[in-house]
């Protein structure tokens, strides 16, 4: 019954997405290292397509070097996209010039992985949180801006009397609260979270995750939640997108992807996540995990994952698998059907 509803949800045309990413690519030109070498092209994000519905939380997971941080920045046009399309609420973001982009900046904000590095050490908390308001809502009088900063501080769990303190006087968890306050001060609809909890202490992580969830509910936010930590993605996301070497290998609803991951890479990634329970952890010990992510400068031909894949066949090196609908989600693997039949056991 549940599965049926899922199927129909996925196959029916979904509600118009708030953010629509279509064949997005971000390539960097990196100077060669030796004197003979030419400029090399780093395909950090290479032909990525997905949508994020209003009020949804989309989790993006992948290993380091898979392009997830670049993708986050490209969504906000903090790094220029090489090709593709990016639509926010129906407007083509990539076609806008810097000036017409500005009003849209109010709608989409970002929080960063290293919360202290994301705060200017020479500014007070009040200046930091007030900065986007100042730039994006210049019509607001000073007093009003100040009041909003204080209200925002209180909301994220900072004391308003800390408004004149400097970033370096705060711990990592508090600094991340400042980052969240800054992002939400302009009342955005979309919040991109680039590994917001991965550099925080264990006991602080859950505080910040709870805060993000509360704020999401309160302000009807749409979240793009990027992480390499599967557990927090499983907790917070409704849909999960798996990236490998700049490409999407699988997208599915949280429940579907964790119950039966379709792509061999997704399986490997899930199997490798350490489980905080010795009995379960020791059962998982023998799950095969092979190799390391190859250099993004020369990704393998065909399917980029084939070099580490236990199921790779000849076709995988010859032909790049396209992302296609399967069993309620989307997957980019030639053998997905076979594998799906083969292993119905939840990982």
């Amino acid at each position: 019954m549940n599965a049926l509803r899922e199927m129909s949800e996925a196959s029916a045309p979904r509600a118009p997405a708030l953010l629509e990413v279509d064949d997005l690519a971000v390539h960097f030109h990196v100077p060669g290292s030796g004197w003979k070498e030419r400029k090399r092209v780093l395909r950090a994000v290479d032909g990525v397509s997905f949508g994020v519905a209003e009020r949804e939380t989309l989790g993006i997971v992948g290993e380091s070097g898979c392009g997830k941080s670049t993708l986050a920045r490209a969504l906000l046009r903090l790094v220029p996209a090489t090709s593709g399309h990016l639509h926010y609420a129906g407007r083509d973001l990539l076609a806008l010039d810097a000036k017409s982009l500005r009003p849209l900046r109010r709608e989409m904000q970002i929080i960063f992985q290293d919360p202290l590095a994301a705060l200017d050490p020479r500014m007070t908390v009040g200046q930091i949180i007030g900065e986007p308001l100042r730039a994006l809502r210049p019509e607001l009088p000073r007093a009003e801006r100040h009041a909003r900063v204080l209200a925002m501080m209180q909301r994220v769990g900072l004391l308003p009397n800390q408004v004149n303190r400097y970033a370096h006087e705060f711990s990592g968890g508090q600094a991340q609260r400042i980052g969240i306050a800054r992002a939400l001060a302009v009342e955005p609809r979309l919040l991109v979270c680039d590994e917001p909890v991965s550099s925080l202490d264990v006991s602080i992580k859950s505080q910040v995750i709870n805060l993000l969830q509360e704020l999401k509910a309160e302000r009807a936010l749409t979240l793009v939640f990027i992480a390499h930590d599967l557990a927090s993605v499983r907790h917070i996301a409704q849909r999960v997108l798996v990236l490998y070497l700049g490409r999407v290998v699988e997208i599915a609803s949280r429940d579907a992807i964790f119950a039966r991951p379709m792509h061999p890479y997704t399986r490997m990634l899930f199997a490798a996540a350490p489980i905080p329970d010795p009995d379960a952890a020791r059962r998982m010990r023998d799950a095969p995990v092979r190799g390391e992510i190859p250099s993004p400068f020369n990704p393998p031909s065909g399917c980029a994952f084939r070099t580490r894949c236990a199921f790779a066949v000849e076709r995988c090196s010859a032909e790049r698998p396209l992302l296609r609908d399967l069993s309620g989600g989307q997957v980019a693997c030639h053998r997905a059907e076979e594998l799906l039949d083969q292993a119905r056991v939840p990982v």
Partner: peptide, 20 residues
């Protein structure tokens, strides 16, 4: 990252040089 944050916050280039 705080420069990126400022850009995401709509701060212009001249202001970024001056303020950050």
């Amino acid at each position: 990252e705080f420069i990126e944050a400022a850009r995401a916050g709509g701060v212009g280039n001249a202001s970024i040089i001056r303020r950050h």
